[in-house]
Nucleic acid binder design. Structure first.
Lengths: 113, 113
DNA sequence: ATTATCGGTTAACTAAAGGTAACCGGTTAC
DNA sequence: GTAACCGGTTACCTTTAGTTAACCGATAAT
């Protein structure tokens, strides 16, 4: 549901969101997982498809997202071992955030060209 | 209008958006200006109401936002001189982004408590 | 004359984010 | 046995973000 808040509370809410979702990679990872929600998403696959991210950053960002219950990490019983990352129900709540950023970015690109 | 894109283009769009709107302060400043769109927003007033921001950061962030045509800066003919910052028509397009972050932040705060 | 307000700038610094490259154990294919 | 793939970790370094405090000129109030 839509919630009401004072301007001050709104700014605090933005700060809270950015603490969890801010930085260069987290929202991109979340969007990617949401776009591939029916597939298995291994570490290497994510690294290939979220262009430019290093193993170190990906590892750290995935840990942060898991800590905040936005994704799950599952070690699969395969040879060689693979690890599947999946978005949680709660993680799906991030979709509107990524969607507005996608739309704004697409629109901005059109505007400046 | 809503635009369609491939997953790859979507991730690029998010990157583009974050290049312009990312960081700790820009979205908070934009939200504040949007919430006080009918008032005059002077430097000191913004600094008081966007809690925690230093003069240096505010100055820098306002310059960045002006460069990207999201806000205007107007020196007023008052004594002492005041400067009014106002959101542009284009700047209003950022509102949905801040709105989803506000809602997510409010919801998250409820969830973890 | 002194103090205060406005709208900043500057310098010096610290902290956080992010990048690069080497390396790890385990497994499988050649 | 050697090379390749998976899923990372570690150490080292650079860059960016952000903080603190001092200071500036102009104007106005006491």
């Amino acid at each position: 549901m839509k919630q009401e808040a004072t301007c001050e509370q709104e700014l605090i809410a933005i700060r809270d969101s950015l603490e969890i979702l801010g930085g260069k990679w987290k929202l991109r990872i979340m969007r990617h997982l949401n776009n591939h929600i029916t597939e298995t998403n291994t570490f290497k696959k994510i690294q290939r498809e979220v262009e430019g991210i290093s193993a170190k950053m990906l590892s750290k960002e995935l840990q942060d997202l898991e800590t905040n219950l936005l994704i799950t990490r599952t070690v699969m019983n395969t040879r060689p071992i693979t690890v599947n990352y999946a978005i949680t129900e709660y993680g799906k709540s991030v979709f509107p955030v990524t969607e507005t950023l996608v739309q704004w970015g697409l629109n901005h690109r059109q505007k400046i060209k």
